[in-house]
Amino acid sequence: MEDTRDLGPADPFLDRSVPSLAPPVRRLRPDRRPVPVPVKPEDDPLIPVRDAAAGPERMRVENLTIRYGGEAAVKDVSLSIHQGQVLALIGPSGCGKTTLLRTLNRLTETTTSATREGDVLLDGEEIEQISVTALRRRIAMVFQQPNPFPMSIFDNVAYAIRVQNAKRPGRREIEHQVVDALRRAGLHDELAGDLDRPALRLSGGQQQRLCIARAIATKPEVLLMDEPCSALDPKSSAIIEDLIAELRRELAVVIVTHNLAQAHRVADKVAFMYLGDLVEYGDVDQVFGAPRAQRTRDYVEGAFG
């Protein structure tokens, strides 16, 4: 296997020897080199400005390495996640996209052999310093398979809203929150007010939107989506994509997808990973239109994967 790291210098974001044009950022950890700042679209004449309305930075991943046992699944990845933007993680199977995603809400910790190096910050705070239950209410996740609990639709969303160890709120107290989450997930009108149906009787696309409703019910800052459309038909996928475009107004979205066309449609930023390395990270039009690394070009042109 060819070493892909030598491709790094081709990408100014990854090459730490290239001085950044951007203003210096506050050094978060004095004992570390500062994280390279991605070239701003307006500073780079090659990148067309697509969405200048990106919000504040929500999450920052610095030199992140994840190992399962001895083997690194994610190698020295750094990137940032902004509110109002959709970041798509693309790459062939087994390249560490899902591991990276699951690290953001500390789900990799549930795998005993997994170890982590580097930092992941949520609003400037290391995620390990936040209690895991609080963190996962702020960083919600939607999975590949729709996985509603075998309860009623109402109870599925209410389960997410109820705070651990707090007094159990009555149905009336949380009803408006449940309805609001279902409405934001675009599911409420289809249900015609019948929220007591078993969730498992919904169609696949509706179940996935219920999972999205459940995930956004706690008003998270970041929404992680692990191939949310891979088990759905094209029509349901299109509805979910519209929903993602809608949701990114209020939160940051990170989506793992194998579907390059989908990444092109929904994403503002794209990160291409290969064998655990972050090969390329940039605006969607730059990554798809003018990729800097040869491997990215091969992948987006469908040469391998």
Partner: peptide, 15 residues
Amino acid sequence: VGALTREASWALGKT
């Protein structure tokens, strides 16, 4: 019970 169900619950911030 599949691992998905457990992860779905953990991902909602449940112990």
